[in-house]
Write a protein that binds this DNA or RNA. Structure first.
Lengths: 338, 338
DNA sequence: TTGACATATGTCAACGTTGACATCCGCTGT
DNA sequence: ACAGCGGATGTCAACGTTGACATATGTCAA
């Protein structure tokens, strides 16, 4: 009931009959300590349930907090969840913990989270930037040597490390796959806002594929869907065109989900579809969904590795890491135009 | 390049020509400060890019870290991701940040994460306990007044707050739904290990429904699948029985995914199916999947609210909160036995 | 004029830990 | 017998901040 004070190093020391410094030595395995003293200290530590105060320690050694700050747009999105998992497992063995916050894609929340993390003196910052916004405000931190890595999307106005999917090449490959199966009119359903980095890159990949095949680009085939519902409606609109597409490329997981729903609602199992980003039930859909799979855990791991090497003093110039995607043909992408 | 030291309060004070204490007063809006002094301090704070050191502050005020520790089994699982999101958004406005770690369902990792959090002097602990393990080791913390809330599954050997889905009632309702549609032989596919709390509760709910309908329990209809693949195989085994079930109840999201795959592989669109936990593409499956939906964000929010009230000094006795589930009929659960 | 009071600021110590340096002891080699 | 040395421990201050208390100046009522 009465909240008992947690024991400090000094409490332990008094109990054993030595100084705090000796206890410190035992716990940090530093300097010579008589085996018998060590044993007695350990005994008391156990008995009192002593736990070192990391806050005090970090402060004294002038070190930064043994934590890295992670800002993601949405924890519920399994893509970012998996990214976060990849990061966490990669840094854990180095004794680092992960502090997360979600920005809900707003630059205000992103900034306030970053400010909180900086006030905590995190050892590094990992940020999935929100769609809009400028990262010049992080310049001072960068110059002060704080490792900062951007994930999934690059920073704006700041030269910093960044780890992204090979969006353009993946989208090109997915679209080319449809072209290889005979399609000449291919719809594109992407994110809103169209300024979002991933959307722009994937759109470029789509156009690259068309250009390489010598196919004309028809901007009437480009639709936007920022949610599954919107994407479903977009798919239906495309199919209702006078000269409708025979295949669709859905440029993110919500768009893919929506496209599947839209095609199902329209009863059109003959329309080919390739989704960007894999879905758990992709293989049991009718037809099974062909996708360009990203590697979210790989993105997280790569970013974590980069952070660790920067923490180890790697001062080489800023890098941009591309994490490859993989085309998984399952059926929907191999349908031929009727 | 050379990592510039971050300015401290003293640096700001020197620059302004006052004492650190005055700067402190300005920043904490405490005590009287001349408007002009305040302005000069703010100016220098901005110019130097000063940010207060939370570590030092927390230590001085003897407060705990303004963070809450969260242990979940797996960040990539959208169920837990959404739970975490619910927590984070609920505590953010109180100025608390969330520190997460995943236990991968092992009690060793869980304990080591908890130890890290305790060493950081977090303000509260939120734990999804791993399947096995005993939480008596947290007794001292509980008695010291640290708010501890268990999520999704209750603690073992420790009286503590806990927030869980209404597993038993939800499973009963789902099973009763199948019975109401004429089924008398209903297969159950659940987690491994069978000792897992959620698995036990949902199994009880299944048996409750059978008992209420006066139907016999046949343990030959009970199968285990700890992954989607295993669940798919389990579904196929059940259908191959001499007297096979006409309906299946899949007691978690992996089991549900697996059951869908298993039925699809066996080409059996006539077998009724109810899943526990909703799936993103449930409505576009053939037939659309009927589910007992949980409310992960609600679980997170409820747990967060509990933590906040404990932090505010609520010393009433430990509670067990049941977050209701919701049956969503979509088709697969309304199929009648042939 | 005095002192009572509010305003504006300063001084000092402490939070729990550890780095730098000092001390004390017993042993060895000469 | 004594310097020299390594082992075991202690002392002290400092990390950046704030609580408790002190000081200095000005204002106003008695």
């Amino acid at each position: 009931m009465a909240s008992a004070r947690r024991p400090t190093m000094t409490d332990v020391a008094r109990e054993v009959g030595v100084t705090a410094k000796t206890v410190s030595r035992v716990l940090n395995e530093e300097g010579p300590v008589a085996p018998e003293t060590r044993a007695r200290v350990m005994e008391v530590v156990r008995r009192l349930g002593y736990q070192p105060n990391l806050m005090a320690r970090n402060m004294r050694v002038g070190a930064r907090d043994a934590a890295i700050g992670l800002v993601i747009p949405d924890m519920g999105n399994p893509f970012f969840g998996t990214v976060a998992g990849g990061i966490e497992s990669a840094v854990r063995e180095r004794g680092l913990t992960v502090i997360v916050g979600s920005s809900s894609e707003t630059k205000e929340l992103e900034r306030s989270l970053v400010a909180t993390f900086l006030a905590r003196r995190v050892s590094a910052l990992l940020v999935v930037p929100s769609a809009t916004g400028d990262h010049r405000y992080l310049r001072a931190e960068r110059e002060a040597g704080l490792p900062i890595v951007f994930l999934d999307r690059p920073a704006m106005g700041l030269a910093a490390d960044c780890v992204v999917s090979s969006n353009r090449e993946g989208a090109r490959e997915g679209t080319a796959h449809l072209i290889a199966h005979g399609h000449r009119r291919i719809g594109f359903i992407g994110d809103l806002p169209a300024t979002l980095y991933t959307r722009r890159e994937r759109f470029q990949g789509y156009r690259d594929a068309l250009a390489q095949a010598g196919l004309p680009f028809d901007k009437g085939l480009v639709e936007t869907g920022h949610s599954a519902e919107a994407a479903a409606a977009a798919a239906e609109r495309l199919l209702a065109l006078p000269d409708p597409p025979t295949a669709l490329f859905a440029a993110n997981n919500f768009a893919a989900t929506g496209a599947v729903v839209g095609l199902a609602k329209a009863g059109r199992k003959d329309v080919a579809l390739v989704g960007y980003d894999d879905l758990p039930l992709a293989e049991v859909l009718d037809p099974p969904l062909t996708v360009v799979a990203q590697d979210p855990a790989g993105i997280g791991a790569a970013a974590a590795a980069l952070v660790l090497s920067r923490l180890d003093g790697d001062r080489s110039r800023m890098t941009k890491t591309l994490v490859p995607t993989r085309l998984i043909p399952r059926g929907s992408g191999e349908l031929r135009p009727r």
